[in-house]
Amino acid sequence: MALQPYASPVQRVWYYSFRVICGLILFFLIFPIMVIIPLSFNALPYFTFTPGMLAFEASAYSTEHYRDFFTNSDWQSAMWNSLSIAPAATLVSVSLGTLAAIGLSSGKAPFRGAIMAILISPMIVPLIISAAGMYFFYSRVGLQGTWFGVVLAHAALGTPFVIITVTATLVGFDRSLTRAAANMGAGPVRTFFKVQMPLILPGVISGGLFAFITSFDEVVVVLFLGSAGQKTLPWQMFTGLREQISPTILAVATLLVTLSIILLATLEILRRRSERLRGMSPG
């Protein structure tokens, strides 16, 4: 909405003050995330800017907290735990979720509404309730405190995202393509991998990214389900924040922000590719 040339002074004032207000709100959104980046390079173990930092003295900055992260055994084992649990959970949710999404979008699925409600429920139920239920149930069957139990739980939490993104991609999928493939003699498996999969791949990958980040960031469920051997990065951060807050957390936080920037960029590229494939202009 551009400012009209005939706008009255009041309208002009409102136009600019509205933009200032929006700017402040956007600043509120981004400031906390951005401020931890310089703070993580603080040479002293403080959580605010030292006079030296404000004067841009090189000696006031250091990468000490990053060195701590990469050498401290607690943080390292937490990182490797996260890096083994999240991909495993993602693999389970993507493979099962994609199949189910194809079934759900065929238009022939019986009890679609009820099934959809069940499959989406892990996303809706508050995490503390999922965590409580899983803790009770998994202790009964001996999965509490095991790597497998945590993966199972995270996979369940990630599937709704796969279902939603893949179903959304399938809305634009031209079904006559699979019929054409079948007509030319391709079996269902071959049709799936050669025709359908390449076209819905952007949706599958973004669903996978959602599932990955869900597991990678998840802390409530792993807090209850995991034992010390499954301590993940968010769990370690949670303990650090609750007990003795150390500046290493800021270094970890900065690394995680970098990771989310990469993920966000990947998703954006995928979205544009998917729209191009569907013949829509990227916007």
């Binding site: 995330i33 931890i36 990678f216 960031d217 951060m237 807050i245 936080a253 993920l263 966000l264």
Partner: peptide
């Protein structure tokens, strides 16, 4: 997209 723990620690 940023981790909940990151925002809370911020």
């Amino acid at each position: 997209w940023t981790s909940l723990l990151v925002r809370t620690s911020a």
